[in-house]
Amino acid sequence: MGHAQHNTDTLPPNPEKATLEGRNKFLAFWFFLGGETVLFASLFGTYLGLRNGTAGGPTAAEIFDLFLVFIMTTILLTSSLTSVFAMLAMKKGNFKQMLVWMWVTVGLGVAFLGLEIYEFYVYVGYGLTFTTSAFGSAFYTLVGFHGAHVAFGIGWIVTLLIRYRKSGLTLTNAPKFYLASLYWHFIDVVWVFIFTVVYLMGIGG
C-alpha cells in the first residue's frame, strides 16, 4: 500500500491512507457512515411519519425559531470548512496549523451544541417536552441523536488533540485525525437535512 518515494523522515502525500492500517480504517469508517445513513434515515422517517401527531400540544409552526436555527446552521457549516482546512494543513505537513484548525472546529462545535441546548430549553418552555406528543418525542429523538453525535465528535477530537498535542504528524495519528474530520462532515450532512426537513418544512410546509 505504501507510496514508494518516502524515506524515514518524510511522510507520503496522503499520510491518512499510506499504511494498510490507515487504509483499513479509512474504508471501515466510510462503511460505518453508510450504516449511519440508514440510522438517520430511520429517525427521519419516524419523524416524518409522526410530525403531525401533536395530540393537541404545540405544533412545529407554532414554536420553531428559524433565526436561531439559521445561526446554528451557519456555525456548523463553518466548522465543516475549518475541518477541511485542518485536513489541507495535514496534507501540507503543517501539523501545528492542523491542530489549530481542529481546535477552531471544536470551538464551533461547542457553540453549536450550546445553542441547541438553549433551543431545547426554549421549546420546553413553550410546552413541547419529550413526552408531550408523538411529534415531541420524534423531534427530540431525531435532533437529540444528532446532538449526541456532535457531543461524541467533540469528545473524540479533543481526546485526539490532547493526546497528540506535541507528537507531530505520524502514520498512526494521520488516519485518526482524518476519520474524525470525516465524522464531523457527516454530522454536518445530517444537519443540512434536519435544517430543511424538520425546521424549514416544519414552518413552511
Binding site: 523522515d9 518524510t10 501540507k92 505537513g93 501539523f95 501545528k96 507531530g168 504528524l169 502514520l171
Partner: peptide, 9 residues
C-alpha cells in the same frame, strides 16, 4: 517517522 512539529514533514 516522528519529527519536530515546526517544519513541514
Amino acid at each position: 517517522p516522528k519529527l519536530n512539529t515546526n517544519q513541514p514533514q
